[in-house]
Simulated scan of single mutants.
Amino acid sequence: MTDHWWWRPGVRPGRRLYVWHILVGERPEVGRLVEECQARLEVISGLDPVPTRWLHMTTQIVGFADEISDSEIESMIDSVRERMCSVAPTTTILGRPLFHSEAVVLGVTPRDGLDAARAGIRQAVAVTVRTNQLADDPDWIPHLSVAYSNSDAPARPVIEAMQPPPAPVDVRIDRIDLVSQERVGHCYVWDRIATVILGTGR
């Protein structure tokens, strides 16, 4: 495991990012699954569990709030709403542990089940936001982080704690949220800016 909390380029205390998330902290079935995983991990030092209210699947980082105008944000939201009219809600399966050196994460099946929503968001960002981070994104693997690593340590205890895998849960994805996000200590917090309902344009 390696420390997740290094300062990425441009990120600093108090500086906010606009990010499109799938927020799942209010889903009871997700909360129970994450609680089980965090209970398995609580004896392992060097991990910061993600509080339930801040559980999320990062879908697209847009850019820094101080580089994007309010009019661009309004145009982006309208463009996302238009594109999401043709993206139907989908049911995904959450629960398969994935290995990442900086976090304990749960994978989403099918892996491409959320690609249409993300593609629509990226198209909207490209045509409405001049200063964006589209080119900075690695290949996207949808996932839910349940704990972040805060130090360098062997991964074996984490891998063993997550075996056997927890029972997966079905999660219906029917909306996406734009948030203004800030890193505070060892946690990501945000204010919700907009919610877009899939398949409706609302």
Rank of each mutant, 00 (worst) to 15 (best):
M1I: 08
W5C: 01
W6G: 02
G10K: 04
G10W: 03
V11W: 09
R12Q: 11
V19K: 01
W20M: 08
W20K: 05
W20I: 09
E26D: 15
E26M: 10
R27N: 14
R27T: 12
P28Y: 11
G31M: 14
E35I: 12
E35W: 15
E42A: 04
V43W: 12
I44T: 07
S45G: 09
L47E: 00
T59W: 01
Q60V: 08
E67C: 09
S69F: 04
E72P: 11
I73N: 05
S75A: 15
D78F: 01
R81H: 06
R83T: 07
V87S: 02
I93L: 08
L94E: 01
G95H: 00
P97R: 06
L98H: 03
H100T: 10
E102M: 11
E102L: 10
A103M: 14
A103R: 06
A103N: 10
V105R: 05
L106W: 00
L106I: 02
V108A: 00
P110S: 02
R111I: 00
L114W: 03
L114D: 01
L114G: 00
A119C: 11
R122Y: 02
Q123C: 14
Q123M: 13
V127S: 13
T128Y: 01
R130F: 02
T131W: 10
T131Y: 10
Q133A: 09
A135F: 13
A135M: 14
W140F: 15
I141P: 04
S145Q: 13
V146L: 06
N150I: 06
S151R: 11
A155V: 11
V158G: 08
A161R: 11
M162Q: 12
P166N: 15
V169K: 08
V169F: 09
V171R: 00
V171W: 00
R172F: 08
R172G: 03
S180Y: 08
E182I: 04
H186W: 14
Y188A: 01
Y188E: 02
Y188I: 04
V189I: 13
W190I: 05
R192Q: 15
I193F: 05
L198W: 01
